[in-house]
Design a protein around this nucleic acid. Structure first.
Lengths: 242, 242
DNA sequence: CTACCAATCTGGTCTGACCAGATCAAGCAG
DNA sequence: CTGCTTGATCTGGTCAGACCAGATTGGTAG
């Protein structure tokens, strides 16, 4: 599960976003001209333009002919992928958005799990057990828990046999990924999380909709609360450029 | 409510997609080289490259260095916006996807309406009445019903005060927009639809969650069934390139 | 102080060039 | 005839430089 960013052009895209981040630009602010950016990044103007075309399509920037390049606001100006990208780069940390994401996640994931209980196949089940093992292995190996977590939850949703739900939830998962990096540093949380995941699989296996739905609400809400607690305790490290 | 496509570069993006459509290219097929596309479209190669950067970011195409440009499959390869774009251009008409979209819409919209009943403000309410009037006016004027319908439903969801839900539902609405063009040709359906919308607003105004939830299921499912009936009766006009 | 004009800056577009792999066909050696 | 090598050709990736048409800006002439 990686942030979808074209590998070409991606370098300049990242550089541009880092520029925005570093200079703490906000909605409506103007970026340097294409020529200056190309000079600054050490690439040709055409390369900058390709990156800007992507950022434009994502509604992160807006190019006004004869005027300049301006920052949009990913939340209001559309482009879910843009939001994900910004979240992943730590560009946005609006508490309201995190609440909204959690709420939307619970809504979609609960219903997805209900469908999964109805429709899951044996193949889904073995895939789930496999992902669960990978999750446990990641804990053992000290790997990227947030990534493994996203993989597991998406595998769970995939059992609903609804590809649109998977795709709807993917950005929501990815968006919260970064917020949960620190969350998984706690040994206790990692263990509890593993137990929860086992319970998820058991519920889907037993086709127990009520249990699955209750689990989702509890699991996601608890996690969100913990993240909030961490954020308050540790202070908000990220700034909000929106 | 328009398909989000950068106005620059958009011409070439559309041309490229039309090429794919016209030549009935499928997943994995190779497009002509950048040089040939630029010749074919009558634009410079740099312009083609900007368009391809966007299509790449949307996961519609894949550029393999030293090899060529290949078509991806928007459903499997990610990029919800890509799906919307393809749906809007009539590039995909997978019955399974339409079912998935309808299902996801009901899930998200029902819960969004429940939240809207809880949280709607007076401002939301007047916005809703206003959108409703615009909807009625569109019927009178014989305007684009599908567009007005998207606007109304998004206004409804916006009353949930959850911006992520709005953004999650936007592509789902847009995706079905094209499928509903013919749907709204029927006078009876237009009238029934208007009645439904009035009922939606009334439920949200009265904060009647149960009524709102029931309405969503009925409204969306009936509409989906009607669209399916139309598709079967009139035959599938679109082809599926996935 | 005002009005006007020219230099300058912007994004939008095009041309043409070079690079480095990949591909493939021709030709040579066996 | 077979098999390997080799070179022409094609690919996307990148760059430099040019022109255009508006918008902005600054200074100058009235």
């Amino acid at each position: 599960m990686a942030i979808p960013l074209s590998s070409e052009t991606s370098h300049t895209v990242r550089k541009t976003l880092e520029f925005v981040q570093h200079h703490r630009l906000a909605r409506g602010d103007r970026l340097p001209s294409e020529r200056e950016l190309s000079e600054r990044f050490g690439v040709a103007r055409s390369s900058v333009r390709e990156a800007l075309a992507v950022l434009d399509a994502m509604r992160i920037t807006e190019r006004r002919p004869k005027s300049g390049i301006y920052l949009r606001n990913a939340v209001e100006d559309g482009g879910l992928d843009a939001l994900v990208l910004q979240a992943d780069l730590g560009l946005t940390f609006d508490p309201q958005i995190t609440r909204d994401v959690t709420e939307a996640r619970i809504i979609c994931e609960e219903q997805a799990l209900r469908l999964a209980c109805q429709r899951r196949t044996d193949a889904d089940l073995s895939k789930l057990h496999q992902t669960l093992q990978a999750y446990a292995a990641t804990i053992q190996a000290g790997g990227d828990m947030a990534e493994a977590d996203v993989d597991f939850h998406l595998a769970l949703v995939a059992a609903s046999q609804n590809r649109i739900l998977v795709r709807t939830l993917t950005p929501l998962m990815l968006m919260s990924r970064r917020w949960r990096q620190r969350y998984f540093e706690s040994e206790a949380i990692r263990r509890r999380s593993l137990d929860d995941h086992h319970a998820f699989v058991a519920a889907v296996e037993a086709r127990d909709e009520a249990a699955a739905a209750a689990l989702v609400r509890c699991h996601v809400e608890t996690a969100a609360a913990d993240v909030r607690a961490l954020a308050e305790q540790g202070g908000t490290t990220s700034t909000n450029s929106t």
